[in-house]
Design a protein around this nucleic acid. Structure first.
Lengths: 166, 166
DNA sequence: TATTGTTATACTCTATAACTATA
DNA sequence: TATAGTTATAGAGTATAACAATA
């Protein structure tokens, strides 16, 4: 990993300073940067496992809600239903989850973890816990609860909206 | 806009509850939801203008740093250099910005706003201010400064890393 | 008629490599 | 040789529409 340099330091020699004060005072710009940093950190935490962040989210959700449907998963994770198909495919191919045709209603597949899936999830959760501990060390003033409270207050009531990032 | 419903309320009738307590306690999941909500709100604020969020960021940055290069812009906004091309193209085609071949070094194009670009930016900033005011109303406990401080602490030192979101 | 899972399609974004023109 | 802007390409993600099976 290269040493971290600021935008100003990396900027070409033509001019020395860059005034980003306007955007840096906006929640939108700050939250984008924060999300990039947090996801990059999770990405590193899962390095070598071959498990992506969405796949981890699916595993964790299925563990606490065995037998839920793909549509429910998509809704819970704010992902479009069609995208769940290749995600579950990958988990099934690696032997971590299975689709069980529902007895009660043949349109549904009940998603469940295999024993291997449960074992892998435990390992991933340990990695994730280390990541989050490291992350919260950055927040020496604000507590973890306070941080989550602010984030959820920002997210409140809007998580189901559709939009295009630009 | 449809009435907002929770995941639980929207979930199919097969089972009534969904336990999302694990993911909801993570910064990663919360920040993703928060970012989706914030960006959806900005998206709505710019509705009808034909201006995207990245384009707005470019306009705002160029306004405070006239004559900066596309590479500097890409760096400042955490966007890959190749992506700047169509973004600046669009602004140029709408008459909001111009590329001025640099006198000192012909490899550079100094990006500047047109008079129209400055006028449009003023209008966009007004819309943006309304959005942010509305947003900060959700945060009755935490102050705006506190929120920004937490977000920038999360983002700190990692904004230049490359990663893939999953 | 409505819904689940699925396929298909178009568009955006990310990431990289490579080209051109300049230096 | 190195860099800015550009082109090209591959891989993910987003957003819709539509289809088969089932209810």
């Amino acid at each position: 990993m290269p040493a971290v340099r600021t935008v100003q330091q990396q900027r070409s020699e033509r001019s020395k300073t860059l005034d980003m004060s306007y955007l840096e005072s906006t929640v939108g710009f700050a939250i984008r940067r924060a999300q990039m940093a947090v996801f990059a950190d999770i990405f590193r935490a899962f390095e070598g496992t071959g498990i992506t962040i969405v796949q981890f989210s699916v595993l964790a959700t299925v563990a606490d809600n065995p037998g839920l449907s793909q549509a429910d998963l998509a809704l819970a994770l704010s992902v479009e239903r069609p995208r769940m198909v290749p995600i579950i495919d990958a988990l099934e191919q690696r032997g971590l989850a299975i689709r069980i045709p529902s007895q009660a209603d043949a349109r549904f597949r009940d998603i469940a973890l295999t024993a291997k899936g449960q074992k892998v999830l435990r390992e991933l959760k340990q990695r994730f816990a280390k990541h989050q501990t490291k992350l919260l060390k950055k927040l020496d003033v604000a507590s973890a609860d306070e941080t989550l409270a602010i984030l959820w207050r920002l997210a409140d009531g809007r998580s189901r909206d559709k939009f295009h990032a630009n």
